[in-house]
Simulated scan of single mutants.
Amino acid sequence: MSRLPTRSRTAAATGAATRGLGSTLVLALGTFAVGTDATAMAGFLPSVASTLRVSQAAAGQVTAVFAISYAVFAPVLATVTARIPRRALLVGSLLLLTLADTAAALAPSYAALMAARVVAAAGAATFTPAAGAVAAELVPPAQRGRAFAVVIGGLTVATALGVPLGNLADRLMDWRAAVGLVALLAALCAAGVFAVMPALPGQPRVPLRRRLQALRHPGVVAVLPLTVLALTAGYGLYAYAIPVMHTLGADADAEMWLLALYGTGAVLGNLISGTAVDRYGPIRVLAAAFTGIAVAMAAAAFVAGVGVRWLPLTGLLMVAWGAGGWSMTSAQQVRLMSAVPQEASVAIGLNSSALYLGIALGTGLGGLLLHASVPVALAACSALAVLGLGYLALTRHHR
């Protein structure tokens, strides 16, 4: 049997790796749909409150219910759906999201809307961990950081566009039509995944008890709290970005482009960190991410506290906020998979649960602290990031 020359084998391996990394782009379409579903609602909550005759605080709980439901559903649904072929699972979860958003658009009452958001969380909680696990299968281990960055890139782009687009859609049409457009987006992404995604078999079913036993693994115990801390510190106040920006000197005309700057920072932070994880390892990337969050939020607290009102500075702070808050996800995924490589999908599912738990906690904490003042809320987020740095230092040897 003839063998390829070393240079030919290397070129073939490089080509296969590039094709695998390119295949993850279609998964990013799906996470974009999921992220848009999760964030766009914040852009038209006042209209939801007015239409359904509830307070804005009650309408805001729609976001919290989605996040909490996601955190609960992710490990359970990963167990129930383990044997389903991956393409069918990914497409089915996006179609479930489509149906849930259609129901939300037609919801006659607040209770019906909440129920639809719980179903939407089930679709999202099924898709995102599965997409991450599939991305890991499509590329060599040395490229996992970049593969995760591509998949999570869909979420960060949705973060960049979701709230501004939701706000714009609310101005041009009613909120029901806007939610209907999100349902259409999820359906289109399902079609794209079906058309492009290679057929991959399901996985052996892992009992839920065994999945939850992963929480007892020292490496998992060391890593998951960092996800919660990072999202609580870096993303928790995003639901209240508009009052934060107003305190920093922005007016209504500046809201859209400042939110876009936040999203730009999030996309750049995610992409750069994905490459950096492969080159420098997750610990250094996480240290840089938590430092970035701490500095950005402390600077914003100082600017808000002393009353500086200069839009270029506000724009810079929004970019830094987005970059710091979204530059840790790929590193956390790689770290968890290194801790329990034999249960990669379990690790990714648990990390997704921790991510949305952090969003829920941060949103709740932000709502409470904003009653004191915006500078206090920003300073608290900076303190949480410093706490994350300390925890990382204590647990950095867990691989």
Rank of each mutant, 00 (worst) to 15 (best):
M1V: 13
R3P: 07
P5E: 12
S8F: 15
T10D: 12
T10Y: 13
A16S: 15
T18L: 15
T18N: 15
G22N: 15
L25W: 15
V26R: 14
L27G: 04
L29T: 15
A33D: 09
V34K: 02
V34S: 04
T36R: 12
G43P: 06
S47P: 00
V48E: 05
Q56R: 10
Q61V: 03
V62M: 12
T63N: 12
V65K: 12
S69K: 10
Y70K: 00
V72P: 01
F73Q: 02
A74M: 01
V76E: 07
A78S: 14
T79C: 13
I84A: 07
R87G: 00
L89I: 01
G92A: 00
S93P: 06
A104S: 09
L106W: 06
A107S: 13
A107F: 05
P108C: 11
S109G: 07
Y110V: 07
A120P: 08
A122N: 05
A125G: 03
G132H: 03
A133E: 04
A133I: 01
A136S: 11
L138R: 03
P141A: 02
Q143E: 14
G145L: 01
G154F: 06
A160K: 09
L165K: 01
L165Y: 07
L168K: 10
R176S: 05
R176L: 04
A186Q: 07
A187N: 02
C189H: 14
A190E: 12
F194T: 09
M197I: 10
Q203C: 09
R205D: 06
R211W: 02
L215D: 05
P218F: 14
P218V: 14
G219C: 05
V220R: 04
V228A: 13
L229K: 00
L231G: 04
L231M: 13
G234V: 09
Y238S: 08
Y238G: 05
A239P: 10
A239N: 12
Y240W: 04
D251Y: 04
D251K: 07
A252W: 06
N270M: 13
G274P: 09
T275K: 14
A276T: 05
R279Q: 08
I283D: 01
V285T: 09
A288C: 10
G292L: 06
V295F: 11
A299P: 00
V303N: 00
G305L: 03
V306C: 00
G307S: 05
W310M: 06
G315R: 02
L316Q: 01
M318S: 07
G322F: 03
A323D: 02
G324K: 09
T329H: 15
A331V: 00
R335H: 04
L336F: 02
S338Y: 00
P341K: 06
S345N: 14
S352E: 14
G358H: 01
L361I: 15
L361S: 13
G362D: 08
L365D: 11
G367L: 08
L368M: 09
H371E: 08
A372M: 09
S373H: 08
P375F: 10
A383K: 01
L387E: 03
L389I: 11
A393L: 15
A393T: 15
L394T: 11
H398W: 14
